[in-house]
Amino acid sequence: MITAERKPMEELTEYVKNHDRILLVGCNECVTVCAAGGRKEVALLASALQMDAMQKGKTLDITEITLERQCDPEYIEELTPHIDQVDAVMSMACGCGVQEIARRFKNTPVFPAVNTKFMGASERQGVWAERCQGCGSCLLGLTGGICPIARCAKRLLNGPCGGSSNGKCEINPDLDCAWQLIWDRLKALGMEKQYEEIIPAKNWVSGRGGGPRKIIREDLAE
């Protein structure tokens, strides 16, 4: 999933300081799962913003709404009846959702309420960790199912570097060394030989190197 964390309160109050009526929009997908921008977080943020406004002696009118998916134009339409009643939107979705709102409603400012972090997985209750950087040409088949691009601090495709120590990364003793994990896994699978295959220079065109990306499925596109 895409993970996110709510921005600090000061940044959010700064965004809305010149607005009286805002639409606070959550998303029922990833940000709900990582407890950053679902229905519950929308309610919490709405009261925090109102409290702050009250302390500053002003009124802030907040309409709360949580969409099924903010990255989908179909659901964004549900905001249409509300948009004329507000002077700004604050989105609690990932950056994709914020941009969909901006694209649809040309005359209303939209502010992000979360910092979108990474594509990751839940390691345990309340802990999420990065797993994928969307490079566009997956090499997990060569690395025992552990991604060195997302999980090695130097994204070495032929690691480990000389700083790997006791299974941990040189930059942070709380971080597993991706190449230790890869090696352990290759060993467990009896695939040690795979390690000695050099992974050649990556073609980054399928990733950010090729500019903003788009998928066009001829069979589905209208």
């Binding site: 601090a153 130097k154 070495l156 495709l157 700083g163 040189e170 050099i198 220079a201 980054w204």
Partner: peptide, 28 residues
């Protein structure tokens, strides 16, 4: 070489490029 991580230096806010790693640099 692949090089020390920026974390250790005086520009910890810099991005590390690593378009290639040290082995791919040797190949090049």
């Amino acid at each position: 070489l692949s090089g020390d991580h920026p974390h250790f230096g005086d520009h910890p806010e810099a991005i590390n490029v690593h378009d290639l790693d040290s082995i791919q640099l040797i190949q090049m």
